[in-house]
């Protein structure tokens, strides 16, 4: 299509919408933290919680909640971008980076090039390994200095802030290394396989 139709009388209410170099195309800033999930919020007890690294079907390492909390912690201050078009700047997270998990598992390098994240409630999402390394991602347990609330993914969610936020899977329980990229839950339902907000990769084919 050439020129978009003009919507008569529509104008910006408040612009600029934050610093332009921090708000991806088609996004707008919010101050609250909207909740979006496909099903009921799981309430997993910390006693029953564990986080697992897997190579295909084989477990590589597993941490209980206490063991996970004892791993070296990292804080990240990042902007997050939801595919439903809201963005939120300067959010503060604490958790364990994927680099730290690999090191703690005694892995010099990741066994495969892709990953699938598995969650309580059956949710999955796929992320290439290189998007998880070098401090780019963590398994987060705290948001703004407090334990992560269940509706926001607590006890622990993946945090991959440079991709659309559906990739930052709530209620994460395992990170599985896989040889070939495969679509996760939303990626099988029409959402983009990679999800880069700066290239506006919202849906398949974008």
């Amino acid at each position: 299509m050439s020129e978009p139709p003009i919507s008569r009388g529509f104008r910006a209410r408040k612009r600029p919408d934050g610093p332009a170099n921090r708000v991806p195309p088609g996004q707008h800033l919010v101050n609250d933290f909207p909740v979006l999930s496909a099903g009921p919020t799981p309430h997993t007890s910390l006693e029953g919680w564990s986080f697992t690294l897997e190579d295909g079907p084989s477990p590589l390492a597993e941490w209980t909640w206490a063991q996970f909390a004892a791993l070296p912690q990292t804080t990240l201050k990042v902007d997050i971008h939801c595919v439903t078009t809201w963005s939120k700047l300067d959010t503060n997270w604490q958790g364990v980076t994927i680099d730290t998990l690999l090191e703690a598992a005694g892995l010099g390098e990741p066994p495969e090039l892709f990953t699938m994240i598995h969650c309580d409630g059956g949710y999955t999402t796929n992320v290439p390994v290189e998007d998880l390394l070098d401090g780019k991602a963590m398994v987060a347990t705290h948001f703004e200095g407090r334990p992560l609330a269940p509706e926001h993914g607590g006890p622990a969610r993946l945090l991959v802030p440079h991709l659309y936020f559906w990739k930052s899977a709530k209620w994460a329980r395992s990170l599985q290394f896989i040889a070939q990229d495969e679509p996760g839950f939303w990626e099988s339902l029409g959402y983009h396989i990679y999800g880069d907000p700066w290239r506006e990769q919202r849906y398949a084919g974008d």
């Binding site: 919010v30 609250d32 909207p34 909740v35 999930s37 496909a38 099903g39 009921p40 439903t84 059956g122």
Partner: peptide, 13 residues
């Protein structure tokens, strides 16, 4: 849980 599907409309969500 698998039979319960949700959509949330927050103030801005």
């Amino acid at each position: 849980a698998s039979l319960i599907k949700t959509e949330r409309f927050g103030p801005t969500g």
